[in-house]
C-alpha cells in the first residue's frame, strides 16, 4: 500500500515516476528557490551540464523563496535529503552558518571577479548584483544621484519598495540605507516616506507596479535594465547610480554536513563556479557572473554601470538586522 501510493499518485497526476533501479546512479539533491529551478531559470541548464560529466542524476527540490529553502533544511535538520543548497545570499549566510548544518566548501576560489575579496570558508558565491533604484529614462531625464537627492524631489515622485519582513531586496534596502548613513538611517527613511507609493510583499509585485507606470522608481538591481535590453530589445530603463555607493547581493551555495556525497557536491560547486557553469547565469538569473566568462557575457551587462561598493559586515547584519528593520519601519509608519 505504502509503495502503491506514490505510483498511483504519479499516474494520476501524470508526473514522471523515477525509473526503477535508478539507485545505482548517484543522485545529487539540490534545494533551491523556485525561480532558480524554473524552465527559464539557470537550474535546468546547470543540471544538464553537470549530468553530462558527473555520471549522476541531479534532482532540484524547491521552496518558494531562498529563506524558505533555509527554513526547510533547518526543519529537516540532520535528516534532510538535501546534499546542497543553492541560492542563499550574503544577507542570510551568517544565519545559515549559525545553524551548524553546513560543511566547508574546500575549493580554492582564485578566479573570482567579485567586487570584494571572498573569504567565506563555507559558502561559494555564484552570482551577484547591486541593489539599485530603476527608472524610465523617457519619463525621468534627471534621476536622483543619492538618497538625499531623491528625498529632495517633489512628493509626486513615487518609489515602490518591498517589505523587509517578507522580501530579500526589501531587507537589502534597509541594509543599504544603514551602510550608507549609519545613525542617520531613520532620518533618511523619514525623508523617503512621502515618496513611498507602497511597500509590497515581494519583488515581483513592486517591479510590476513600476512597469505598469504606477511609480517612477522601483527598488531592484543594476542588472534589471539589462534584462529589458537583452531579452526584449527595450532600452528605456536604467538604474540610478547613487554617490554614497550601493550594497551588493551575492548569491551563494553550500554543502550540507549531513550529505553522504560530499565529494560529488563539491564537484558541483566547482562546476557552478567554472567558466562553463557561469556562462549560463547572466541570461537566466539576470545577475553578474563571478568569474570572467569573456565574450559570453552579453554586451549589455558590460554597459550596466558599476557603482561604488558599500561593504557591510556579515556579523553586523546578524547582530543588528532586526533593530534596523524596526527603526526603518517606525520611521515610515
Amino acid at each position: 500500500m505504502v509503495k502503491l501510493l506514490p505510483v498511483a499518485l504519479a499516474a494520476f497526476f501524470g508526473l514522471a515516476a523515477l525509473p526503477a533501479g535508478a539507485e545505482e546512479v548517484p543522485i545529487l539533491r539540490i534545494y533551491t528557490y523556485d525561480s532558480f529551478a524554473a524552465e527559464w531559470g539557470p537550474g535546468p541548464g546547470l543540471k544538464a551540464g553537470f549530468e553530462a560529466t558527473c555520471g549522476c542524476v541531479v534532482e532540484l527540490t524547491t521552496a518558494d523563496d531562498a529563506i524558505a529553502v533555509l527554513r526547510k533544511v533547518q526543519l529537516e535538520g540532520a535528516t534532510t535529503k538535501a546534499d546542497l543548497i543553492v541560492g542563499l545570499d550574503t544577507a542570510t549566510s551568517a544565519e545559515a552558518r549559525a545553524t551548524g548544518l553546513f560543511a566547508p566548501h574546500g575549493l580554492t576560489l582564485d578566479k573570482l571577479t567579485l567586487p570584494e575579496a571572498w573569504t567565506d570558508p563555507d559558502f561559494v558565491p555564484f552570482d551577484y548584483g547591486y541593489f539599485a533604484y530603476v527608472y524610465d529614462k523617457e519619463k525621468m531625464p534627471n534621476p536622483p544621484k543619492s538618497f538625499e537627492e531623491l528625498i529632495a524631489l517633489t512628493d509626486d515622485i513615487k518609489i515602490v519598495i518591498q517589505d523587509p519582513r517578507s522580501s530579500t531586496p526589501g531587507l537589502g534596502n534597509v541594509f543599504w540605507v544603514q551602510a550608507a548613513y549609519g545613525e542617520r538611517a531613520p532620518e533618511i527613511w523619514a525623508g523617503l516616506k512621502p515618496h513611498i507609493l507602497t511597500m509590497t510583499k515581494g519583488w515581483s509585485e513592486a517591479y510590476n507596479l513600476f512597469l505598469a507606470g504606477e511609480a517612477d522608481m522601483v527598488l531592484s538591481y543594476t542588472t534589471s535594465p539589462t534584462y529589458h535590453q537583452v531579452a526584449e530589445g527595450v532600452d528605456k530603463y536604467a538604474a540610478a547610480i547613487f554617490t554614497e555607493g550601493h550594497v551588493a547581493q551575492t548569491e551563494v551555495a553550500g554543502v550540507l554536513k549531513s550529505s553522504e556525497k560530499q565529494e560529488l557536491a563539491q564537484k558541483f560547486l566547482a562546476y557552478l563556479t567554472s567558466v562553463e557553469g557561469q556562462k549560463l547565469i547572466p541570461t537566466t538569473n539576470w545577475m553578474f557572473p563571478v568569474v570572467d566568462i569573456g565574450a559570453d557575457l552579453p554586451a549589455a551587462f558590460g554597459e550596466a554601470p558599476t557603482p561604488k561598493l558599500l561593504e557591510i559586515d556579515a556579523a553586523d547584519i546578524a547582530a543588528n538586522s532586526r533593530a534596523w528593520v524596526d527603526a526603518a519601519l517606525a520611521a515610515i509608519q
Binding site: 517578507s166 507609493l197 510583499k201 509585485e205
Partner: peptide
C-alpha cells in the same frame, strides 16, 4: 499581499504580515 500592494506603506497592514 493585496493589503501591502495597495496599502501605501506600513501604516496599512494586517496581522498576517
Amino acid at each position: 499581499p493585496v493589503v501591502l500592494l495597495l496599502g501605501g506603506g506600513p501604516a496599512n497592514q494586517t496581522l498576517e504580515v
